[in-house]
Amino acid sequence: MSCAHEQNRGKVKVDNNRYIVKGDFSVIYPNTPIFNKQGKLCGVTNPRDMTYIHSYGAEAPFFEGLSKGSLKGTKCENPACEYKGSVYIPFRIYCPDCLKKMKIVDLTAAAKKTARIYTYMVCERSGAFNTLDKPIKFINVKIEGTATILMSYLYLGEPSMGMRVVPIFRTKNPTYTITDLSWVPEGTPQSKLPKGFSF
């Protein structure tokens, strides 16, 4: 992408239930032909750059919470639900059983005190557009009192099953994505956290 396009990259605001877009959202480049060794035409490339717009809807409090150092889940409080009291992380808007809107609950303290690695995987590869350092240490974290097991990544140390971990949050220059949440082994000092992250 050229410097001009970079500076004028598309941005979006919401006003009165409408997306207001400004800047470059669709950048086209000249296509090129594809030939085989004998010089026969096989096809063409179709290069272009696009920016998608995506709504978090009622999940927005979760992603906004990460930027403020808070891990939010949801809890079914419908007295008529067979599974009343179940707490979900990943954050779900509606109870998967009764489909009533759930209450947002703060799981930061519970995560700090009880989170353990349920399973993990160290992955040497990534796909295009990855922003995490490799190898990526995928971890699935079980927080006591919750019905589910959150996927995330371990920033420091070597993962093992049952290992106690604590959440860290990208509170400086947050991306407002799931990558703003990471984990470190219990007892890790603030000085070892990645730039922009805090407990």
Binding site: H54, Y56, E59, F63, P90, Y118, T119, Y120, M121, C123, R125, S126, G127, A128, F129, N130, T131, L132, I136, F138, I139, N140, M151, S152, Y153, M161, T177, I178, T179
Partner: peptide, 24 residues
Amino acid sequence: KDWETPLGHIYTGYYAVMAQKYWQ
């Protein structure tokens, strides 16, 4: 796309945690 894809953009990783659990 919100909860998993940004984590490495590699599907193998999302399955491989399951493999690791079974393996152990």
